[in-house]
């Protein structure tokens, strides 16, 4: 039996959790390749025009996986850290099932639909039972996987803090984007590359510790409902004084971001902010020009801090 994991959306959040779980259970899996032009084209054909870019990419990856494996793994997550999620994470299973109806694909569902600390284990338990695993196997696999995920995140956060606090002549730029945007080869990668080429040090907001960030986000916005946006907003609240500028990367037409970005721009007044919106047809030239002029502003500010 072979399970296919689409490299899209929640994969970038829970990569270690899922892969370790399958490893420990002894289940073979493949992960779809990095997003490329072909996948994007497939995605654009499969999805409704108005669907947001990450969801389109998910459909593209599933299209790639459909002939390569026995089961396609689709996650569905309703709550994270007791906070609500964007509805696209709740609709993933039904969206995929309805889009690929009539192709007789087999799916493996991972459904996290409750609040509370045990919810994640229950989701894995259900999946383990469906796969016909023993309780001892999936329980052990889950706890090992959880540990791997926690340590991975901790390590990443420490690394990111080090990068932030190290004194350097480079411009430090806080890149604010969801995990599935910043990790994607098509969406986030060009921006990080361009920033590095321009002599900046990108600090990724997503990699900071989630718990601290979510607590800090309450300073800026009290009723923000979405867990992942709370995380990003909290990172801005905590670290915006230590960076030179902020780049916000959004995909079109992201629901939560459309409102939260406005809030960020209205609340953070002391740092230059650049908002980039990506779509399926984005060429890289326009992007580079905008980033170049943004970096020019940062350099200009450094030379004449009180101008």
């Amino acid at each position: 039996m072979k399970v296919g994991i689409p490299r899209a959306l929640l994969y970038y959040k829970y990569e270690k959790l899922w892969t370790t779980f399958f490893d420990e259970c002894g289940i073979e899996y493949i992960i779809s390749p990095e997003t490329n032009k072909a996948i994007i084209n497939d995605a654009a054909n499969l999805a409704i025009d108005e669907t947001c870019l990450p969801t389109k990419i998910l459909l593209g990856h599933i299209n790639w996986l459909k002939n390569q494996c026995d089961y396609i793994f689709i996650p569905r997550v309703e709550f994270v850290y007791r906070a609500q999620m964007c509805t696209k994470f709740m609709a993933q299973i039904d969206l995929v099932m309805n889009t690929f109806r009539g192709e007789h694909l087999k799916f493996l569902f991972y459904n996290l639909y409750k609040k509370g600390p045990k919810a994640e284990y229950k989701a894995f338990k259900k999946m383990g039972k469906y796969l016909g695993l023993k309780k001892s196997v999936y329980k052990y696999a889950y706890y090992t996987a959880k540990q791997a995920q926690v340590y991975y995140e901790m390590f990443r956060a420490q690394n990111q803090l080090q990068l932030l606090q190290q004194p350097t002549p480079q411009n430090k730029v806080l890149v604010v984007a969801h995990a599935y945007n910043i990790g994607d080869k098509f969406v986030g990668e060009p921006i990080l590359r361009t920033l590095k080429n321009l002599g900046c040090r990108p600090i990724i907001a997503e990699y900071f510790d989630a718990r601290e960030c979510i607590q800090a986000s309450k300073q800026l916005s009290r009723t923000l409902p979405w867990a992942y946006n709370q995380h990003l907003l909290g990172a801005i609240a905590l670290y915006h004084e230590q960076v030179d500028g902020i780049v916000i990367l959004t995909t079109f037409p992201c629901g939560p971001d459309s409102m939260v970005n406005e809030m960020i721009v209205r609340k953070i007044k002391d740092k230059p902010i650049l908002t980039l919106t990506m779509d399926t047809q984005d060429g890289s030239a326009g992007l580079e020009t905008r980033l170049e002029s943004f970096v020019d502003i940062l350099n200009f500010q450094k030379e004449r801090p009180h101008a």
Partner: peptide
């Protein structure tokens, strides 16, 4: 309304 995520997800259905 344009960009209403839940309704867009309902469209294929």
């Amino acid at each position: 309304s344009f960009g209403c995520t839940p309704e867009i997800d309902a469209m294929p259905i």
